[in-house]
Computed example of a mutant assay.
Amino acid sequence: MKNKVQKGGVLSVVAPYAVTSGQGVLVGALFGVATGDAASGAVVEIDRTGVFDITALTADVGAQGAKIYWDNTNRRLTVTVGTNALVGCLTAAKGGSDTTARVLLDGVVR
């Protein structure tokens, strides 16, 4: 196939804020995990698919399979819908004292 550009699991994006490796990054409808550190406005690669442990609202609880959202203001996952973007689902239950959530990303926010 001559028209395929790349697989698309990892994409280069312009960092909307300073990011560190392993941090969630939301750019428009693209969500992924930074593969390295980057200053705001610099190019950073994000991994858009797979299972990751990502910073989450500590007080939240959720069962395996529950939908999980990105709170871009606080730059963390949450179970609260509100204006937050749906980024995936929990692959393991999240307890109320957990600082991270294990999430399956599919690469496009909803």
Rank of each mutant, 00 (worst) to 15 (best):
A18T: 14
A29V: 14
N74F: 01
A93G: 12
T78E: 05
N74S: 06
T35Y: 05
T58I: 10
D106E: 13
V108W: 06
G96I: 10
A39I: 06
V19D: 03
G8H: 05
V43W: 07
R76A: 00
Y17R: 10
G50I: 04
G8W: 07
Y69R: 06
V103W: 01
A38C: 07
G107H: 09
V79R: 13
D98L: 04
G36V: 05
D60M: 04
A101E: 00
T58W: 09
G8S: 06
V43R: 08
G88S: 10
G82V: 08
G32Q: 09
G22H: 04
R48E: 05
L90M: 10
V51W: 04
G96D: 15
L11T: 08
T49C: 13
S21E: 13
V27M: 11
D47E: 15
N72Q: 15
T73E: 01
V5L: 14
V79I: 15
V33P: 06
Q64C: 09
G41A: 09
A59N: 12
N74Y: 01
L86Y: 12
E45T: 13
A29M: 13
S97A: 15
E45L: 11
G22R: 04
L86C: 10
V43K: 10
A34I: 08
R48F: 05
G9Q: 14
V25C: 06
